[in-house]
Design a protein around this nucleic acid. Structure first.
Lengths: 246, 246
DNA sequence: CAACGATTATTTGTATGATAATTGTTTTCA
DNA sequence: TGAAAACAATTATCATACAAATAATCGTTG
């Protein structure tokens, strides 16, 4: 019987990963993202999954339904569940992204994440400078204050995520919001990758402050540039971590 | 008993919307996106959904699992299924986006879509010009050829979608791919909104050709500008449609 | 021999009923 | 008053049966 719990994964405090069909979905999802089941191939049928994991077909089916909904699988009677081509995968889904980065080189993952961030985050800031409401800008300031108050590098992560999410909210475009999980993944992985070894924490703080200032003064181009500057710093943090590691 | 099939929705040829739990998911999903069930509120419990639609609890549960996976709901024993706050919704999911635009003013939807496209697509073209492989650029040319061959405005939609998807593929970044459904939604809705009344079809063709040229010649800034120019044209097409309608 | 049509077998889809686990609420008791 | 225990409502899981869809097989026929 296969393992369902990944014991080397102690984060996500009190998050609901206890339920059986969720554990199944995670396990099967990781297999797919990890390449054990290639796109276009057929998965074991439901009864067999049940045998493999020692659970009922009901639980298997609910897991499969979850994966269907995320674009990883399509199921048809008499044929089974087939892995969809990668371009159908909903990689901007929270779970799928987690399974994906689980199956990638941390450095390669961070690079592709940074590529995406450099595309949209400066524009997010520009939109926020134009359309952000006073209360949204206040939330941005609050998150920044939280970053200043952090005692350790580990404590910086949460308010840092809040900061970027607040910026995203201030852009006031629903379609942009799913990209928030890219930011979450970026910061979480960045922290674990650099092992809390950020060479210039106070510099990062200054850059964030510049963003707050530009957005609250409605300086569109300034906001864009401030975010871009922060992301270039992040790039070099990643690079130094890569050089000092192997 | 509520209706499950929306008879005014004849598109999606041969797509699998026949299965009960999918119809349920769509129906409940549209209710949520439409605002019938506000974020933070509790849904009817599973047994009651079964009574409402006249189906078994099994089908209801599988529908709920699908919606869970898309971030619209969380379910807990003894409490029920609660609608998640909007920022958790996975709006870049194909189904969720369809339900979303179903519940919005077409014009407002197209505007927010265009906002997002103007952020991403120029940079996607730039990446394609840098990283696109010869075969990917060939696919771009093929799609363009398909647009030229189209006899009517309706026939243009499919190769147009192919064109932008090919561009997206050529960018070679998995995290950008889910963005493709935004393009699909944009073009499909654009067509139905403007009622095939594109004032300058040959102009659009020229703009697409400029994109092909820039990308295949590896002109990064040129590709960026060509896409931006196309999107400005799309903006004005939307605007003229808005003015001639009401 | 080829093409087509009925048959069969396999897999998912749906229904039903029962039991377990979880957790908000209420009651009881110190 | 407060904590512990009983309760109740709801989802979670299981087992089983049958229905529906369809790929594959096998005849049948032209």
């Amino acid at each position: 019987m296969a393992r369902l719990v990944s014991n080397h994964n102690p984060p996500s405090p009190a998050r609901q990963g206890n339920m059986l069909h969720l554990k199944l979905a995670r396990s099967i999802g990781e297999r797919i993202l990890g390449g054990t089941h290639a796109p276009g191939t057929l998965l074991p049928n439901e009864a067999e999954w049940g045998r493999i994991y020692g659970v009922s077909r009901t639980a298997v089916r609910e897991a499969i339904k979850t994966l269907n909904g995320k674009g990883l699988l399509v199921s048809k009677p008499k044929v089974g569940s087939r892995v969809e081509p990668r371009e159908r995968w909903n990689l901007l889904d929270r779970d799928v992204l987690a399974w994906h980065c689980h199956a990638m080189e941390p450095h390669a993952f961070l690079m592709s994440v940074q590529e995406v961030r450099k595309i949209f985050e400066p524009e997010i800031a520009a939109l926020a400078a134009v359309k952000g409401t006073p209360s949204q800008i206040e939330a941005l300031k609050t998150a920044f204050h939280g970053m200043k108050m952090a005692k350790s590098a580990a404590e910086t992560v949460a308010p840092d995520v809040d900061f970027h999410q607040a910026l995203l909210s201030a852009a006031n475009n629903d379609l942009l919001r799913p990209f928030g999980i890219v930011i979450e993944a970026a910061l979480a992985n960045l922290f674990s990758y650099t092992s809390a070894h950020n060479p210039y924490p106070e510099l990062s703080l200054k850059k964030h402050e510049a963003i707050v200032r530009a957005v609250s003064r409605r300086q569109v181009e300034g906001a864009r540039r401030a975010v871009h500057s922060l992301l270039r710093d992040t790039d070099s943090t990643i690079e130094t971590a890569r050089l000092t590691k192997p």
